[in-house]
Nucleic acid binder design. Sequence first.
DNA 1: AACAGATAGTTGGCACCTCCAACAATCTCG
DNA 2: CGAGATTGTTGGAGGTGCCAACTATCTGTT
Lengths: 151, 151
Amino acid sequence: MEFAEDAAPTTRLALPSRLLNLAAISANRITDLALKDTGSRRYHYTLLSTLDENGPSSQADLGRCTRIDRSEVTETINDLAERRFVTRTPDPADRRRNIVSITAAGRKHLATLRKLLTDAQAQLLAALSPDERTTLVTLLTRVIGTAAVRD
Amino acid sequence: MEFAEDAAPTTRLALPSRLLNLAAISANRITDLALKDTGSRRYHYTLLSTLDENGPSSQADLGRCTRIDRSEVTETINDLAERRFVTRTPDPADRRRNIVSITAAGRKHLATLRKLLTDAQAQLLAALSPDERTTLVTLLTRVIGTAAVRD
DNA sequence: AACAGATAGTTGGCACCTCCAACAATCTCG
DNA sequence: CGAGATTGTTGGAGGTGCCAACTATCTGTT
């Protein structure tokens, strides 16, 4: 019986926390697909973008700024350095630190990623008007600001 | 120099897709903490709740309705059946199917979970007014509706 | 009635992500 | 100087979403 087979399009009574997860899954599907042929993952973009905006940073600062765990920063920077998208030099003023800087090739790669991801955002938020997208971003930022900052 | 050490509270220029992930991480942290002492995970709640609202269902329908993969449904139902929160009986009308039903003990457990998770939602969305929470849910539902339904 | 194709449940595995614990090296501050 | 904190690194844990394969069963067509 293929009649309705409505199979409840989900989310009828899902908790906000579940809705956030489903939305994140959608987001990841779309963005991962967009990045598939670039050899880069989401973390690569996040760090490249942060380096481009904030300038050279230590790995610890990168982690705090992006909420990526220190160990993940290490591995991701390894990848980026291997492809010559960033350089990692010891900080003479604090020999514990590495100063990570984006290279010209890194900026070029970042431009490619940004283009792909911008399109992905548009696809993800296709159902929302520009105002609604702004609202969503605002609300998400507020949720993150309170609920997440506690560590 | 501990001056600012602002370490950029993140999310200044994060993509919507990244914001969704960060919000989902916050949501999962809070909900996992809430469920910690119950022996149940998020999927257990999702399936129990769905069974309570929709009545007995096949595992395939549960998966479609909740967007949980079939293999995950199998494992989660295993757990729930082991704790006598659901029963799994073959469907006489279609011997491929299992009819999964919530038990009285399951409903009792569900009430416990629901209480904990309701509090968790309040904590997660503490920064938003009631209207804003509604708006967030609406926008997320629309995002999920378009971007996710494609498989 | 018989066959092709779809569906159900199960199992196993993969990839990513988030988080944590430990460690040596180094810095900071009293 | 010495206690405590911080940095980068390594290793591992657990959860999640996803996919492929397999058997059993149903459906629709001829």
